[in-house]
Design a binder for these strands. Structure first.
Lengths: 212, 212
DNA sequence: CTATGGTATGAGGAATCCCTCGCTTTCTGG
DNA sequence: CCAGAAAGCGAGGGATTCCTCATACCATAG
């Protein structure tokens, strides 16, 4: 397994629309193959076969194997952000903790439940190029900013350091959902409840000293 | 990379004590190599070279590459448990939350700070055989049991479901430390403080309704 | 219909990798 | 010092993998 050519850049820019479909076929096939075989055994040959194409065709759309992984991973990050945004869109503003927190956690958890094996391959087993890590952190910063806004909007909350608290909230949701994905002990509702309880307690305790 | 012989069982039982040292040399070398090159590029040839041995010798002590990984991973789990036990040993019983919680978190986090790259290779990048997962869960159950005892001992706490709370505590420590290991944003003290704050708030809120 | 260029093919080159096995060196007990 | 056993050696077999490239198909514009 020698050459490993230039980084992420489609080898061919689509001209006919057949091309766009083919690209999608490859990505869908790759997702299935990686989920089933893992990073190492997720061969480009196998991907081509699953997409009913020849290897050569695959390499007309992606410069190398890693770029397929990267594309898949970036797409997942975007989907996550979109899913959470969609969940929040259904909630009236200003929202209270008990409104938006369960909805957000549930949406995020649900998204990660779909294909845990693929998720593990994309974000744990495979090498994570700087570009992916950067996008990941950016997504987290965005999430933290959004959470901070929600925290500030809540009239029942009076936090001394909403920015820091928001980062903790995001970190907790993120890492507990991931942990749950890689080893499902309980059902998803239990998980959601536990995360919500944890964060509600945390945020309540983090308030400015009230009266007294 | 074809054959992948039988599972984890030393090919040769040590007779001379030179042998014991060699085995250690291999494990030490493997740890360095895996940390530096990752799972895929962490070649058995490279491990042999780092241990100043020939591949043949390596295969006299381990039946295959994966068994080296497994040995390293199991050792790490044992070390973790031992480190936490050691940290708790320094604390008088019965201990209050603010005594044992920071010490435990700090000990656990410290252990994982040593070699984050190796840790990632062992527990994320590499395939995790059922045996490893089983031991991992067992270690977590043990930890949860220990935490439950501590929670029950604390005179200031009166929890309705100490067992469940203990599992949450372990899960939070576990996953937040791991998250931190794979992307160090802040320093370790900040992390420890935040986890402790989080859990203290959680446990306070989880108490039986006190007086009123 | 034909020319142009986008799209698809798949055998095979080059690079590794895991592990074996016949052999040598080193140790130990008598 | 010697014989047998333990420990160590390392070239190479067999298996895979990633990716290229010369070739062929096919869609559309003119």
């Amino acid at each position: 397994m020698p050459p490993r050519s230039s980084p992420h850049q489609p080898r061919k820019t689509p001209q006919q629309q057949r091309s766009w479909q083919t690209r999608q076929r490859i990505l869908d096939a790759a997702a299935r193959v990686f989920a089933d075989y893992g990073h190492a055994a997720g061969t480009t040959d196998r991907i081509a076969e699953a997409a009913r194409l020849s290897v050569g065709s695959v390499y007309q759309y992606f410069p190398n194997k890693d770029s397929i992984l990267l594309t898949l991973a970036l797409a997942h990050i975007d989907e996550s952000a979109a899913a959470v945004r969609a969940a929040l869109a259904d909630i009236p503003t200003p929202a209270t903790l008990t409104q938006w927190l369960p909805a957000t956690v549930a949406a995020y958890a649900d998204l990660h439940t779909r294909d845990p094996r693929l998720h593990r391959v994309l974000f744990e087993e495979s090498p994570r190029p700087p570009e992916l890590l950067a996008r990941f952190r950016q997504a987290e910063r965005d999430a933290a900013d959004a959470v901070e806004q929600l925290l500030r909007q809540d009239p029942a909350l009076d936090l001394a350091e909403p920015a820091r608290n928001a980062r903790v909230v995001v970190a907790v949701i993120e890492s507990l959902v991931h942990r749950w994905v890689s080893q499902q002990p309980d059902d998803i509702d239990t998980l959601t409840t536990e995360i919500v309880d944890l964060l509600v307690a945390y945020l309540s305790a983090a308030q400015r000293p009230p009266r007294r």
